[in-house]
Design a binder for these strands. Structure first.
Lengths: 150, 150
DNA sequence: TATTGTTATACTCTATAACTATA
DNA sequence: TATAGTTATAGAGTATAACAATA
């Protein structure tokens, strides 16, 4: 099926085959992540948000930028997570306008739990790769990510 | 940052590093796909729907299963796409209850356009991989996908 | 004036539950 | 009874536009 598409699009067949695979893998991984998130009554975005807050204490605007969302959208997300006790807003440093977002102990515990589940859920996808393949996949991922977000 | 998480989770470090990369790449690809979809006033799900309909004429229930959605959710998605003239519902074969979904010429044109844009957007992520790495990535993707959806 | 964040509004996406029609 | 699909409802996610407070 991808073959017929490849022909119709008339691009570089090799790139297209690779892109097809990349997209398929992407949807598989998204499905796994969503399943884990749903199990804890989180959306994928909320889980990602908690994942960021595990290691950072960003301001609202920077958080919105990282997630690729409008500030107004983030306000709602943070509202709901705050109402659940997963994070806190607090006044941010020198600038009287800005707000910092901190994960709570409960939020951190949930993030930790979810992360472990994601690893366990995805590990089978990755488990039968041999050592050399793992190294190569890591390298490829790193190079693919390096090109982005300059 | 991934390193500290790895230590806290106490699992197999090697798997976790690989999973971290996989998740990061996943979000990058989702961002690219979403950007393309938005450009054509489609959601990611709608674009995926059109992608399936390029090569298939499924019934509603099978479509819902493929997308991992409830039938009621799919009804709404198909409603909106049908209102835009991107697809058609028609009575499905022998079973008087079932409904087949067909892409229209306009829908197919949009799917084709979007697919080309996705390929062009993702190709740079993939372009500097050498021949052997491409083969390996394809093989890995295939193996990763084979495990799923039996 | 420009920036940070929130609020108001409107729409899409999503699931659950109840329903209709067919099997 | 069971299945295919829709409708009703409710809530979350999202963006745009208008706003307040601060810079």
């Amino acid at each position: 099926m991808a073959a017929s598409r490849r022909r119709r699009s008339g691009g570089t067949g090799a790139d297209e085959a690779l892109v097809d695979s990349l997209v398929q893998v992407t949807f598989s991984v998204v499905a796994v992540l969503s399943r884990v998130a749903t199990r804890h009554e989180l959306s994928l975005t909320q889980m990602r948000l908690l994942g960021i807050l595990r290691d950072h204490t960003p301001k609202m605007s920077s958080l919105a930028r990282h997630l690729g969302l409008e500030r107004s959208t983030l306000s709602g997300l943070v509202d709901r997570a705050e109402a659940r006790g997963l994070l806190l807003r607090c006044p941010g440093g020198g600038d009287g306008r800005s707000v910092e977002v901190l994960i709570t102990r409960e939020g951190a515990a949930l993030a930790e739990l979810g992360y472990g589940e994601v690893v366990r859920a995805l590990a089978p996808l990755v488990r039968d790769l041999r050592g050399g393949e793992r190294q190569l996949l890591l390298g490829i991922a790193e190079r693919m990510l390096r090109g982005r977000e300059p």
